[in-house]
Every structure is written in C-alpha cells, then in structure tokens.
Design a protein around this nucleic acid. Structure first.
Length: 824
RNA sequence: GGGCGCUUAGCUCAGUUGGUAGAGCAUCGGCCUUACAAGCCGCAGGUCACAAGUUCGAGCCUUGUAGCGCCCACCA
C-alpha cells in the first residue's frame, strides 16, 4: 500500500482515514501528567439553537484552531475542550419556532423534553461537522452548560455572589419581553430603527385650563402618566412650575416639574413621564420620587388604571387611545418620525419596563474594576479592547440574571412562605433543583415559619456560559464554600478565542465572573475573529437564506480547502466567502501531494536521509537559507496570532522557491541517469535529494496547522518513513531554523540570487521557443538526447548561481547582465 | 450624535519599524515537458478614496473630508 500511489489526491478518503486515525491514536488528548508547558483554550460553546451551520462557523472555528495546532506542534500540552451551550433563551426560541408553540401552551416538563431532544440533534450535527473540518479538540473533555457539573459551577457562582453581597434580589423596574414573558439584561437588547408616529396631545392646566401640549410616540401610556416635565430654563412654562396638569381622557392630576435633561427644542418642550415608557422615565421616577402607575402586566395587557382600555394588549391599545383622543379633541397633531426602539434580541419585541422582583448581579459599582481588567488583558487585534471599554462605560443596569423561563439552570433558592425571605442552598447540596426538594433548614431563619416556596425561575444563559474557564477547570465551591479545582493549574486559561459580536456578553461576563470569584482575569490573551460573510459581502442570516452549506463545500472541495479560505482572512476582519479561494486551496493540496510524490519517485530504493555540507551546491544553500527565512517569518506571524500572513509566507515559498525554482533546477541531478553521472559527484546527488526532502518536510510541517489532512497524508505516505518522526505529523516537532549559516552567506553576498533567478528565467524565456523545439525533437529522437539537453540547461543555471554567489567570475556574460541591472 | 474598522491592479486581498508599489484570481501571449495542464513560463494592468501638513523622502505619521461596514446612544 502506498498513500501516494494514486495519480490524484482523494480528499474524501483521506478525511475519513485520518479523522479516525487521530481519534484512535489520541493525538489531541490533553495529558494532565505532561511535563510540557500547558496551553489552555477557552473556545465558544455554540448555542444549540441553529439548524444550519454556515461558512462563518467554519471560518471562525478554523482560524482559532490553526493557532492551537501550531502551539501543539511547538511543544505545548494542549487543553482544548469543546462544549455546547444547550439551554436558555436561544434554545427555547429555537424549539418554540420549530414546533410552533410557546411557553404558555405547554407544560414545563414537556417543553424541557422537547428542548433536550432538539439540542441533542443539533449538538450531534455540530460535533459531526467539527470532526469533518478537522477541529482538533479533545472530545473526551466535551461539556454542556446544562449538564450537572456545569450547573454545579453556575450555582456555586450564585452562592458565592450572594455571600459576597454581589447578587441580590430586588424589585426594580426592569426590561421585560412581553412576548417571551421574561426579564432581560442589557446585553439581550438591540436597537432597531422604525417609522413611528409622534402625536401632539393636549393636557390642561388644572388651575387655568390652559392647553399644555406634549409630544409622545406612546399615547397608550397616557393613563400611566405621573408627571409633566420641562427644561428649567424654558421661559414658556415658568408660570406652571409647581402647578398640576390634568391628564386627558383619564381626568386625574399630575405635577409639572423641571429637569435639565429635557430638550427645549423637541416638540413643545413639554414631555410626559410615565410608569414606564423608557429608562429616562425610570430615572426621573427615582430622582423625583414620582407616583407609580403600572398599567402593563407581564403579558403586555393593560390593567385597571387604563379604564375603558383595560384588557387590551399594548400593541393594539395605541390605535384605540389615539382614536379616542381624536374624538375628544385632545389630539392636536401627528407626524411621522424615525424612531429608535429597543427590542429583545431573541424575539424582536419592543422592550417594556415594568417593576418586578428579580435577582441582580452588581455591575454598576464595579465598572472601573472591569475596565482595569481589560487593560491587563492582551487583545488580538488590540482595537477590540475599545469595544469592550465602550460597552462597560455605557452600562446602565446591573445584570438581571433571573429568567421566567423553563429550560435553564435552576436558581438554587427557596422563599419563606410567610415573610418571603430567600433561603439559598448550601454548597454541599449542589447541583440542586429547588423544585424537587426543600431547603435544609426546617424553619425560616427570619420568621421561624416552616413552609417554603421553591424558586421557579432559571438563570440567564450567560450566567453559566460566563463560567467556561471555571467549568473546564472544574472550579466549584467545596462544602466549606471555597473555590476548589478538579483540574488544578488550568485557571486562568492561556487564551480565549471568540467572535467580536459577543464581546459585550460572553467576554464581558466572563471577566466579571473571574474578577468576582477568583480575583483574576480568566485568561491571558483574547483572540477575536471577524465574521464570515456571503459571497456578496453581506451578513449571513437565516432570513436572507444566503448561507453556503459548509458540509457541501467540504464534500466537494475538501475540509483543507475550506480551512485554506478561512486562513486567508486577517484576524478580526470579516471575510467574504469566495469559492475561487477554496478552489485555490484545493490546488495547493494537489501541489503538495504531487511534489511529495515526485520526491518519492525520484529518490531510489536505498535513500538515506542526510548530506555532506561540503557537497552542497549554491542552489541547495540558497534553498536552505530561504527556508530558514520563511520559518522566521512564520514564527513571527504566529507569535502575533497572525495565521494569515504565516500561511501566505509558507505558500509563496513552497510554490515559487521550492517547486518552481528549486525542484526544476535539481530535477536532472536527482534523476541521476548514466549520462549525467559525470557532472555530479555522488555526494552532490545525495545532497540534492536530501535537501529537497528536508525542506519539503519542513514546509509540510509549517502547512500542517492549516491543512491537517493532506499534510498527514504525505507525512504518513513519505516523510515518516524517509526522515522519521512521531505517529502523526500533528505532534511532530515544529521546525527550528535548520543550521545557522546555510545560504545566509550566499544571500548576503548578493541578494543577487533572486536577481540571478530572474535573469535565468528571462534567458529561459528568450530561448524558450528554441528550447521547446529542441525538447520536442529530442523527445522524438529518444530519452537520452532529451535528458542531455535538460542537463545542459541545469548546468547553466547552477554555474550562474555559483558565479554570482561566490566570485562573480564565472559565467561573465550573466555577471555582466546582473551588473547592468538597476541597483536595488 | 459618539466609537471602531475599512477604502491599494478588473476581482479578492497582503503590505512589519516611513526608503522606487506586491500576491492570487481574471485577461492576454507562449508551452502536453518523466511530479503536477487542477501544471509551467511570461506580458500587461495602480495619482495606494480625496485634500492639506510633517519629512530629503508618505500606502504607512498628523489633521480634515467623503463613502462603506459594524458597535454604542434617553431626544420623549
């Protein structure tokens, strides 16, 4: 059997063969006993909530994985787990949409069962795809955020935060999604623009009956109005300060107050404040201790205070209120306006603000500490730190972590049936579902009551996924309430890899947790990838239906080719899908396969690796020196996590210097027919072979992180036997600069070697027609003439190189040409 | 409105500390040659978005302008 026999490289066969091989041999297994330096990776557990993978997934995971493969070859003990974030709102939404249900139409156990069934399917397809792509994770470390160990860590986090006074339960106006019927955090919100209607509505002075017109986009909140505000400097309303205004339709009085935040220019300069239209209403409600008139319930239905509109859904009430205002003459004008509305990221429903009892993690008081942590972190590329800073500086809310949902990590707490005091679970009870058992305490420590109510809410999904470094280190509270690691030494991790879109969530929350729990950064470096875009440069989205199926691409062009495309994207920048680049990747694989095959066929049976330095010809030294240079470039690039320039450097050297120049030049030396035996010594022939093998092997190792399948194929089919090495190329030693001095002397003398090659190429072309004619003729007349002709050609090249590299005395004709070239 | 990124050959993109503009693909011309026609050799193609400044010298540094993309933001 030979892996290089086939005329063409069969990528599908190779993919099946090698992925099995790596698995069986445990090539990617983490070894806790290893003496090698540790390199631990915190990689995103994808939401088990997407039915379709697209090239963006392939891109971001490949880019990160290339860096890890390089670290592995450079001698690190790699800890590289893969997890799945298989609970929480994203998963629930996925299931709701797929089955056309919502949480009010199904029981909790039924719903959870559906979620589990679906996440299993989705995780299976991800797992399959990562294997197909050659993602080198240690699958024995797989975790899921809903699994008991992860729940244990998340609940530990909660207990610790409660103990430290950083998690508290309080009744606050919060962001609420009336369609999903749950609380939301600032990170769950996004802003959209839409056309809205700005309505001028007349209030009246309670004293004089003077008409007071305000502008509002939310007339349905008029029954929730608790005050009118104007700017303190607004001369138009000075006479009204301290007076009352009468609310239209609902006929009650509200105070007229001032605040600097009111824009004199907007509308009439007079605004209404409600319970609650937006965060600014809440701020004023706090600041001025305004009355509370809650009219919306959790489902978005207007309550009693809305009078005749009670029972209407907020989305329909607006039109009805407007109609009534119009009818009664209170509507003074309307105009279209472009509105920015906060909506829930997962449902697209405009956010409502209602007072609710929820668990919060303190963020606002620690913003400075979070900024300081970001400063300590190494960001690649560095400018993404600004996004983080910007987000932290713009924080307006503490982190609401309780969700009124079904499928998530339970909040480990009960409440006293009498005084409602929370009783938090003990560390040794974790993981726990409070709905299935009661607290250890038999009576309430506050009031002595003996009945308890279990918390029904679950945690925000980020509560758990923000702990991936801790989950993977097995860091949780022991019975005494101290953090203890099952896998010591892993925390903090070396590197976090992720996309830029989750800086404000995953990255930020993980920093928060590391800071609060371990008083540490969770990792040293963070590497941020861009997005894979469709071929037109647009964001890939389900609604546009513009995703390329990466599974099909792999089947058609190979995993290596898709990875090649991924690696062309610069770190942190978006990359549009480009089939041509995937095809180019495929060509590269073919070139590697064929060049190895060429060596394999040219060496002869008795080949032994090694050469005598004295036998090296200038071209050999040129190649050796060049390969050292390339290695230096590649190393410098990898040190900056710049896989993209690393690949470019290897590829250019491989293709141009190695294949198109070196192999072409030494071909006839390698073939070593009877005819040219007189031109080269045996040692020179051996040196040519060995240098060709050595340098290609080095290049194959440099290529290995990018294109793991083809490199394994040629390693197993050739280099492992001819040169020797470990069981897989992926744990082969990363090449070091080979031997100081090779080629450097030659390169230093003239930089001229490249120029020489340029001249030679030119010579070749000038003579090409002639040579081609001769070759054809020689081919017809017999192989001996043909070889002789080519040998002559190579001799010319070799002597020219020698001439320039050393004394510039031989081949005077060429030397003269080089001298005549424009100076560099 | 604020922040960040981008703008270089027809297309996709590289260009590290300022020192005569690079690659791949596409086009065009030449080549079936014992690794590879999925290949090889070559030609051509650029006011580096625009403007000003610093400098002996700017794709790169400074300032400003425009366009595109993303993030953030309470104008009800």
């Amino acid at each position: 059997m030979s892996l290089l026999d086939a005329k063409r490289y069969d990528h599908q066969e190779a993919e099946t063969l090698w992925s099995q091989f790596w698995e069986e041999q445990g090539i990617y297994r983490y070894d806790p006993q290893s003496s090698k330096p540790l390199f631990s990776v915190d990689t995103p557990p994808p939401y088990a909530s997407a039915a379709h993978l697209h090239v963006g997934h392939a891109m971001s995971y490949s880019q990160a994985e290339i860096l890890i493969r390089q670290k592995r070859m450079a001698g690190h003990n790699i800890f590289y787990p893969m997890g799945f974030d298989d609970n929480g709102l994203p998963t629930e939404r996925y299931v709701e949409k797929k089955y056309q249900i919502n949480k009010s139409k199904i029981t909790r156990p039924e719903f959870v069962e559906l979620c589990m069934k679906e996440t299993k399917l989705v995780t299976e397809s991800y797992r399959h795809f990562w294997r197909m792509l050659g993602i080198s994770v240690d699958w024995s470390l797989e975790y899921s955020t809903i699994s008991p160990p992860a729940v244990h860590v998340a609940q530990s986090s909660f207990l610790d935060l409660v103990k430290k006074g950083l998690a508290v339960r309080k009744k606050e106006p919060i962001m609420w999604d009336v369609s999903l019927q749950t609380a939301l955090a600032q990170a769950d919100i996004e802003a959209i623009e839409r056309n809205g209607q700005l309505n001028d509505v007349a209030f009246h002075s309670a004293d004089t009956g003077e008409e007071l017109v305000i502008s509002t986009t939310r007339p349905e909140l008029i029954p929730a109005c608790v005050a009118l505000f104007c700017n303190p400097a607004d001369s138009r309303y000075q006479h009204l300060l301290g007076k009352k205004a009468k609310v239209p339709l609902f006929d009650y009085e509200v105070p007229i107050l001032t605040d600097d935040s009111v824009d004199l220019e907007f509308g009439t300069g007079l605004m209404m404040v409600c319970t609650f239209g937006d965060p600014e209403d809440i701020a004023k409600w706090h600041k001025y201790k305004l009355d509370t008139r809650v009219i919306l319930n959790e489902r978005g239905i207007l309550g009693e205070l809305a009078g005749e509109f009670a029972g209407e859904h907020v989305s329909k009430a607006r039109a009805k209120v407007l109609e009534k205002l119009e009818e009664q003459g209170f509507l003074k004008g309307q105009k279209q306006t472009l509105q920015r509305v906060s909506v829930a990221e997962r449902s697209g429903t405009p956010v409502e603000y209602i007072p609710h009892l929820q668990w919060f993690i303190s963020l606002m008081d620690h913003a400075d500490a979070f900024l300081k942590r970001a400063e300590e972190l190494n960001w690649f590329p560095d400018y993404f730190q600004k996004r983080y800073d910007h987000w932290v500086e713009g924080l307006k809310w503490d982190w609401c972590v309780s969700r009124q949902r079904f499928y998530g990590v339970p909040i480990p707490v009960w409440y006293c049936g009498q005084c409602d005091a929370p009783i938090v679970a003990e560390p040794d009870e974790l993981p726990i579902d409070p709905t299935s058992q009661g607290p250890k305490a038999k009576t309430c420590p506050h009031c002595g009551h003996g009945e308890f109510r279990a918390e029904q809410d679950v945690f925000d999904t980020w509560m758990t996924s923000s702990l991936t470094p801790q989950i993977n280190s097995g860091l949780k509270l022991d019975a005494e309430g101290n953090w203890k690691a099952d896998r010591p030494g892993l925390f903090p991790m070396n590197i976090r890899v992720q996309g830029f879109e989750i800086i404000r969530t995953w990255l930020f929350y993980t920093v928060v947790k590391g800071h609060f729990h371990q008083d540490s950064l969770p990792w040293k470096d963070v590497v941020i990838s861009g997005w894979g875009l469709d071929k037109k440069g647009q964001k890939i989205s389900k609604s546009k239906g513009n995703y390329e199926d990466p599974v099909e691409i792999v089947q058609k062009y190979s995993a290596d080719a898709l990875r090649y495309w991924s690696a062309l994207g610069t770190l942190g920048h978006d990359l549009r899908y480009n089939e041509v680049e995937v095809k180019n990747g495929q060509k590269l694989l073919n070139k590697i396969y064929n060049s190895t095959r060429f060596l394999s066929m040219s060496l002869g049976e008795d080949y032994q690796h090694g050469w005598d330095d004295a036998a090296l010809l200038p071209v050999d030294r040129w190649l050796l020196g060049g390969s050292d240079q390339v290695l230096t470039q590649v190393q410098a690039a990898f040190d900056k996590y710049d896989y993209s320039n690393a690949l470019r450097a290897v590829e250019r050297f491989f293709w141009d210097a190695y294949c198109d120049n070196y192999l072409e030049m030494i071909k006839f030396r390698l073939w070593n027919s009877e005819d040219n035996a007189t031109n080269y010594t045996d040692a020179q022939i051996q040196a040519g072979k060995a240098v060709a093998v050595e340098v290609l092997f080095r290049l194959v190792k440099l290529f290995a992180p990018f294109i793991p399948f083809i490199t394994e194929q040629v390693y197993q089919g050739f280099f492992k036997e001819k040169v020797g090495g470990p069981v897989s190329v992926h744990i082969a030693e990363w090449p070091e600069p080979l031997r100081q001095g090779y080629g450097e002397e030659d390169l230093a003398k003239g930089t001229k070697l490249d120029e020489v090659l340029g001249v030679i190429r030119k010579e070749k072309i000038e003579n090409q027609i002639g040579i081609a004619t001769k070759i054809r003729a020689a081919h017809l007349s017999g192989p001996a003439d043909y070889v002789a002709l080519c040998r002559e050609f190579e001799t010319e090249i070799a002597s020219a190189v020698r001439a320039v590299a050393f004394t510039l005395t031989e081949a005077p004709e060429l030397s003269a040409k080089i001298e005549a070239m424009p100076k560099g």
